[in-house]
Computed example of a mutant assay.
Amino acid sequence: MGKGSLDGAVVAVAGAAGPAGRAALLKLAEAGAVVVAADADVARLAEAVDAARYAHGGATVTGETVDLLDLEATRAWADSTEKEFGRIDGLVHLVGGWRGSASFVETDLRDWSKLEKLLIRTVQHTSLAFHDGLLRSDRGRYVLISAAGASKPTAGNAAYAASKAAAEAWTLALGDAFRKAGGEDGPRAAATVLVIKALVHEAMRAERPNAKFSGFTDVSELAEAITGVWTKSPAEVNGKRLWLTSAP
């Protein structure tokens, strides 16, 4: 099996029903992976899974509603996936959410409570649940999608930026665990952070045909970057932030 090949790889995608998730499912299936998708929105998840199956006849793409705020449910998802397919080679974390305010002092701490669950707790649970399985793989990857705002927070985005920064730190800690597990031979698995400014997709462009979306990453480009993490050795991407927009 060639370096970086996704043929036969089993990749789980958390938060798979949104535009970025749909693009990722398509690209992973196209690259030959068995794709195991999860989302809280049953109807949108079914649509995303069907679209990926239809686009790539013969591809194995499954969908499951998993409560990623429940650690045991997340562990059960990881365990059942590895048991069913015999391996687990990746977890792509696309669970998103945004809350902001007009100014720093107008920050609503209820936004923090919401974002802490969506952007941090789901990272904690998926990383803990998939850690062992990814280490058992010969090409395990944990991929977090983050935002440039985590490194350069703005006044009205305090809760969002702090949540993203915490998620990045947690993922880099997972990378350190992979580094230590690899010993002198270097890491066998990798935890990687892909950093964007914001995402754009076809529906957004249709709604705002005159908008420039400067510095935004198209969801198809993000999907390419996600699959590209498997084309590099674990040592090249483990514990790294890979910037898809200009670093601040």
Results as ranks from 00 to 15, higher is better:
H93P: 02
D138H: 12
W77T: 09
T171M: 05
H93Y: 09
R121D: 14
A29W: 04
L69R: 08
D50Q: 12
D132G: 11
L71D: 09
F85D: 02
A102W: 03
P153H: 04
R87Q: 15
E82H: 14
Y160H: 14
A155M: 13
G58W: 02
K27F: 02
L25C: 05
A52S: 07
E116A: 14
R53L: 13
A150N: 04
S127I: 01
V61K: 04
E64T: 15
A169C: 03
D67R: 03
A48P: 03
R141A: 01
I88N: 01
S163T: 01
T65L: 02
A52E: 04
A76Q: 07
A51K: 06
V36L: 14
G57I: 03
V36A: 13
L45Y: 07
V61W: 04
V35H: 04
S127D: 04
S151I: 02
D79F: 03
D67V: 04
F85Q: 05
L118H: 02
Y142A: 10
G149D: 06
D70K: 08
V42M: 11
V35A: 02
L118N: 07
G96S: 04
A73I: 00
L69Y: 13
L115M: 12
S113C: 11
G86Y: 05
G100K: 11
V92T: 01
V35Y: 05
T154I: 14
A48E: 09
A148D: 08
R110E: 15
S163V: 02
V143T: 04
L69Q: 12
P153I: 04
A162M: 07
L69N: 12
A129G: 05
D41M: 10
T126S: 15
R121P: 00
A46G: 11
H131N: 12
R121N: 13
V36C: 14
K117A: 14
T107C: 06
G100C: 09
V61A: 02
V92Y: 03
A78L: 00
V36Y: 07
D138G: 13
L119I: 10
E116K: 12
A159P: 01
L91Q: 08
R75T: 06
A73S: 09
